[in-house]
Design a protein around this nucleic acid. Structure first.
Length: 714
DNA sequence: GGGGGAACTTAGCAGCAATTAT
DNA sequence: ATAATTGCTGCTAAGTTCCCCC
């Protein structure tokens, strides 16, 4: 990896901003520490604190690796290759890849673990030629996988080793072919301003199947009486019935919204009859649905295979488009089916009916000279347009929020890849400027102007804690969540002293997706003082940064560095954190398993920083208990093995050590003890890892924030 | 200058496939 | 072979940013 370069840069940066760094290091520590989705219980809190601690070390923002692009591309190449290589072997699929700017070093490390990292998408793009191979590989891999699956399935039935081997070969071949065909768009010139493509052709969206009426033996009951519903009302009833096992259907808001919208679908008679949701009995419909899913699970191999093939056919037909004469995979080619709106958290619109989209609602975007997709028989499109300054192929307006939905390309397409690459490039650029920018906002903390001062504090949070920008939201339209600029007085508590630290800010608010952000962060005095000032004469519901909004903030940022916006800090800090963690956590001597653990730990640090959470898995308690039981069993076994060993030793001694049989026995027992110990250790590590991971979602950061080049380099 | 909307990225979750343990 | 776990993918909601219009 371009360590040397980095190091140099680092040095420079360090000199420049020693102060800053100190600051940031210590400060950054707490970032995003503990959040507990539901109830913040004390135990957790302590755990979290620990995490935070470890974190602190981690986070210092040095930018070691971000180096010059030239080195990058080289490193990239290597990475790519590595990646590809590994990927091929395993046939691993990849998620998206991103490339990042950051690392670039070239050592290339390829540990097998890399596979896990999946970020390849961008990689490809990045470098000039380099990437290509990668991308192609990636792609191919995906396809290959599919193919493999198919093949595997068919072969399994016969399953001879040769056949499997054959299949493997075939796959590899196919992969290679794909690679050959892969569009090396990163080698091509960019289009002029705003133009996203010159030629675009596709088949249009895939519509969900029409509603199938209930069979005659399944009934809906109202107030104990059988009621035959009209088709429209029945369909909506089924949506509800299918969700009966879900918590949603117990929520008041959900039920009310559903009922209101359902009544709109009813005929006059139905509406006058059905006045109370509590009197509705969806039992039979629910049972039917459950039986159906059960039946699907129990399908024979052949049936499943047939289904798969049918799906593949749809993908083949609708899943690709032609963009500038290259075949590209579409990300979501299906129109979203109707159903009940599942907003996150306390969403005021949860349960509302999400209507079925008709071709008449759909706008098609493609080249004038392409083959225009045909609407379903008897229908017409809302509009066909030819706008090559946008990347979508199809769009429609959704009825819940009135927002637009789009069909766009897959993540490893040129259009997405390029953007992703740009994102990491901006983050790299920030690396070289961040010291100045930090210096600037620290200066701004002294400003007499309220706006400037609020802006400085907000930036401090965004940089240090990786908070999101925080746009204003319309009340009543969405759940009440906030980001940095939209924080309210009630979301923070100031502590002059807390847990041995001075000037601690306690955050507690719901962020994107209603994920709770809870963190106690020591801040510098100036920030603390400013916060006190901002809080003066305000009610809990008032805005903390009343003079600030995201557009003011971003305008300022872009004046500091072109392309800089609030979210770049998230990308930047996530990548830097990963890089540092990796550096800190791994030793050369580590074996693969240890390295993997380190990578996961580093990844976890990033996820914590970004507050990526998940609900603890439903089976978590159970599986943890199982694991514990296993550990206990192991322990017993170990004890037993130990006593046996002792006994064998004793016997060997008393009966004469010359007896080879007894000697062998001792050896065997020794080995058994050792094995037991190892297994026990392994289980324990597993338990820790899992516990630590309980509510942290790693995938998002991998997917969206971590520059793949860092991983590759590592 | 700010309101609103279009376009695009980021996010968690459900469900299933792949993998590992039993 | 089966059960349990893990890991992906697809889906689509929920953000950010930019831009236009007044």
């Amino acid at each position: 990896m371009g360590r040397e370069k980095d190091a140099k840069e680092d040095e420079k940066a360090k000199h420049k901003a020693t102060k800053l760094k100190r600051l940031s290091d210590s400060e950054r520590a707490g970032a995003g520490g503990d959040n507990i989705k539901k109830s913040p219980n004390p135990t957790k809190a302590t755990e979290n604190m620990d995490k935070r601690k470890s974190h602190k070390k981690v986070k210092t923002p040095k930018m070691e690796n971000v180096e010059s692009s030239s080195s990058i591309s080289e490193s990239v190449k290597q990475e790519l290759q590595d990646d590809a290589f590994t990927a091929k072997k395993k046939g691993v699929k990849r998620k998206r890849i991103k490339d990042d700017p950051k690392e670039g070093t070239s050592d290339s490390a390829n540990s097998p673990t890399l596979k896990k990292k999946k970020k390849q998408r961008h990689l490809e793009e990045e470098g000039d030629g380099v990437a290509q191979t990668k991308t192609s590989k990636k792609r191919t891999q995906k396809m290959v996988k599919k193919e493999e699956e198919e093949q595997a399935v068919s072969k399994k039935s016969k399953k001879t080793k040769e056949e499997i081997e054959e299949a493997r070969q075939l796959k590899i071949k196919k992969k290679e072919e794909e690679e050959q065909n892969r569009w090396r768009w990163w080698e091509e010139e960019k289009y002029e301003d705003g133009v996203k493509w010159k030629f675009l052709e596709h088949k249009g969206p895939y519509f969900p199947p029409e509603y199938q009426p209930l069979p005659d033996n399944v009934h809906f009951y109202y107030n104990g009486k059988k009621v035959k519903l009209s088709l429209a009302a029945e369909e909506v009833a089924v949506f509800f019935a299918q969700m009966l096992d879900h918590e949603y259907t117990t929520k008041k808001v959900f039920r009310e919204n559903f009922f209101k919208d359902w009544r709109k679908e009813m005929t006059h008679e139905e509406r006058s009859l059905i006045q109370d949701l509590d009197k509705c009995d969806f039992g039979e419909i629910h049972a039917m649905h459950k039986a159906k899913t059960e039946a699907r699970k129990n399908m024979s191999k052949e049936e499943k295979q047939a289904l798969k093939e049918a799906n593949q056919k749809i993908v083949d037909e609708y899943g690709y488009c032609l963009l500038d004469h290259h075949k590209e995979r579409i990300g979501n080619f299906k129109i979203e089916p109707p159903g009940l709106f599942r907003g996150r958290g306390e969403h005021p619109k949860q349960g509302m009916l999400k209507k079925r989209i008709q071709p008449e609602d759909v706008i098609i975007n493609c080249s004038k000279e392409s083959r225009i997709p045909a609407p379903p028989a008897g229908h017409h499109w809302k509009e066909v347009r030819h706008d090559n300054t946008v990347t979508w192929l199809v769009s429609w307006t959704e009825n819940i929020q009135g927002s637009n939905k789009y069909i766009m390309l897959n993540a490893n397409s040129k259009l997405k890849g390029e953007k992703d690459w740009e994102k990491y490039e901006v983050a790299r650029k920030l690396k070289s400027r961040v010291d100045d920018i930090r210096y600037q906002y620290l200066q701004d903390l002294k400003s007499k102007q309220m706006v400037t001062r609020q802006r400085a504090v907000a930036l401090y949070f965004i940089d240090k804690l990786a908070l999101r920008a925080g746009n204003e939201k319309e009340e009543g339209e969405t759940a009440d969540t906030v980001g940095c600029c939209s924080l309210r007085v009630e979301h923070i508590t100031l502590h002059e002293q807390l847990d041995g630290n001075e000037c601690v800010v306690e955050f507690d608010f719901l962020g994107k997706d209603c994920i709770r952000y809870y963190n106690k962060v020591p801040v510098i005095k100036k920030v603390f003082k400013s916060l006190k000032l901002f809080l003066e004469n305000k009610q809990p519901g008032d805005e903390l940064f009343d003079r600030l909004n995201t557009s003011v903030l971003n305008k300022h940022l872009s004046s500091l560095m072109p392309g800089l916006t609030a979210k770049v800090f998230r990308t930047y800090n996530a990548s830097i954190t990963l890089q540092q963690q990796l550096k800190e956590l791994t030793n050369k001597s580590d074996n693969v398993a240890e390295k993997l653990l380190s990578y996961n730990r580093a990844n976890r640090a990033v996820a914590i920083l970004c507050n990526h959470q998940r609900a603890p898995p439903k089976t978590f308690e159970q599986s943890m208990a199982n694991l514990q039981a296993k550990i206990d069993a192991r322990k017993e076994q170990l004890a037993l093995a130990k006593t046996e060993l002792k006994q064998a030793k004793k016997e060997a001694k008393t009966k004469g050590s010359s007896d080879p049989k007894l000697q062998a026995l001792v050896e065997r027992k020794k080995a058994a003890v050792k094995r037991c110990e190892e297994q026990l250790l392994k289980l324990e590590v597993q338990a820790t890892d899992r516990e630590e991971n309980k509510q942290i979602a790693l995938g998002t950061s991998k997917l969206n924030y971590l520059d793949p080049r860092i991983s590759v380099a590592w």
